[in-house]
Design a binder for these strands. Structure first.
Lengths: 122, 122
DNA sequence: AGAGCACATCGACGCTCGTCGATGTCTGCC
DNA sequence: GGCAGACATCGACGAGCGTCGATGTGCTCT
């Protein structure tokens, strides 16, 4: 055991993200939000979240996710762990299968960051 | 090499992001969006974007940004380059000074990704 | 022409990340 | 009990990242 120690968030608070525009972001706040974005800043993990969110019931079995990629089962498991550790995914073991679901409000918290970014009109 | 567009610089790929929820994201689309998130997935760069966006006129001089951090000028310059290369920041040299501004619509494109994330149940 | 400032680039360093094969742990079934 | 399947964990590898000091480039003013 060595490094993985996030605990970035264990509570459904998710009260992290102020707009990003408007007033400058504090250093502490940036340190808190960055791991969330880092967890999402990977093509595979992005697709994983998307696949899970678009699945029936908002949850997906690992076995199904595994088939959607040309990667080892170990690698997929690793990515799911990263997303879970970041607080983005919920984990539910049912019998032999494990189901992951997007934690409610997790993506919304991130969306809040860029929300005011609706300065797009121009 | 099953290449994707390199987007190494300056291309307004901003017409990228479908919702993320709803329908699963394609591999190509994930590869296109991930670099954007990766550029933002750093506390320093997050604060840089925030500082610039919150500045008067939506732009900020490098000298001012430099003073806001306990980092070397070389490091700040590096981070600004990363953000610029990702298409998030515009660069404008005026005399001796260089001003960076958040590219219009850049954050909005990212916001679009998490937008439908309003699946927040309650 | 020369000096001085603002910013970019270079080369190097330690650290983290994404991926893999191998192995461990738990569950359900014969 | 034992075996097979579904996931997680371990250890290792190459590649990339964040940071630094040193140096380069372009502008302004004297």
């Amino acid at each position: 055991m060595s490094t993985v120690e996030e605990t970035t968030m264990s509570e459904p608070g998710l009260a992290c993200c102020t707009p990003l525009t408007g007033t400058p972001m504090s250093a502490a706040q940036a340190e808190q939000v960055a791991p969330l974005l880092k967890a999402l800043a990977d093509p595979v993990r992005l697709r994983l979240v998307s696949l899970i969110a678009a699945s029936q019931g908002g949850e997906a079995c690992v076995c199904d996710l595994n088939d959607a990629f040309d990667l080892t089962q170990a690698t997929i498991s690793h990515h799911l762990k990263v997303l879970h550790s970041a607080g983005l995914l919920d984990r539910d073991k049912r019998g032999v299968w494990v189901y992951y679901a997007v934690r409610p409000g997790a993506l919304g918290a991130v969306a809040n960051l860029f929300d005011t970014a609706a300065l797009v009109p121009a």
